[in-house]
Design a protein around this nucleic acid. Structure first.
Lengths: 107, 107
DNA sequence: ATCCATACCTAGTAACGCTAGGCATCGTAT
DNA sequence: ATACGATGCCTAGCGTTACTAGGTATGGAT
């Protein structure tokens, strides 16, 4: 999976992964890897700054949780986050259909 | 269409548009706009540097053509360009399936 | 004791597509 | 005649992004 492809799509992935149940950064990485069957195996240096960016943008809220002696920062979608996720999914669909129409590639 | 989404996918679009019949930059822009039903309406500042990059990479060859008093630079795929296009299409499919699997979005 | 998994963070980097400007020709409408 | 839009090319610099590479720390297993 060429990493340059990910640019502009990461927010959609993160919001989708956090949609149903909140999670902390480490689990976000795991979920992405599992749900994509290994396709998205993203480094921490990608995930943590992105989560911070989404929180600054008001799409996520975080709170610190103590668990088995380790501190975790759990993220959840705000109302704006849910709206943004819907918009991102629609934007993705337009984009993907465009690529398919132009290139004849399949999804 | 969020422009940031395009990053990493432009090469695929350009190679696909030039696959069957060579064209010059201006026509590439037109074809992208038409085939995507207006979704990809890309500025010259995106297209021309990208074509130069692909030529430097050995995926395209160009030659200057005189037409109705205007000079045009026509681009065509090299053998390496055709191979790269096939690889890009496969890469796109993996990527798209990953996004769909993670987000539940549709193409 | 050592190592790996867990769990967080950030400064700096490379690559990308885009903005904004430039130059030139042709056809058409004023 | 001339102004303007469409055609047709180019590039320096910009903003955003995901990543590299480094750091800190705890818990469990060997």
């Amino acid at each position: 999976m060429d990493r340059e492809r990910l640019k502009g799509h990461l927010d959609l992935l993160l919001l989708a992964v956090l949609e149903d149940e909140p999670a902390h950064g480490y689990v976000v990485i795991t979920r992405l890897r599992e749900r994509s069957d290994g396709g998205f195996d993203l480094p921490e240096g990608t995930i943590y700054p992105a989560l911070h960016r989404l929180e600054r943008a008001g799409l996520l809220v975080s709170d610190w949780v103590e668990h088995a002696g380790r501190r975790r920062r759990a993220y959840a979608l705000t109302a704006a986050g849910h709206r943004e996720l819907a918009a991102e999914r629609a934007s993705w669909t337009r984009f993907a259909r465009g690529v398919i129409a132009v290139t004849g590639a399949t999804a």
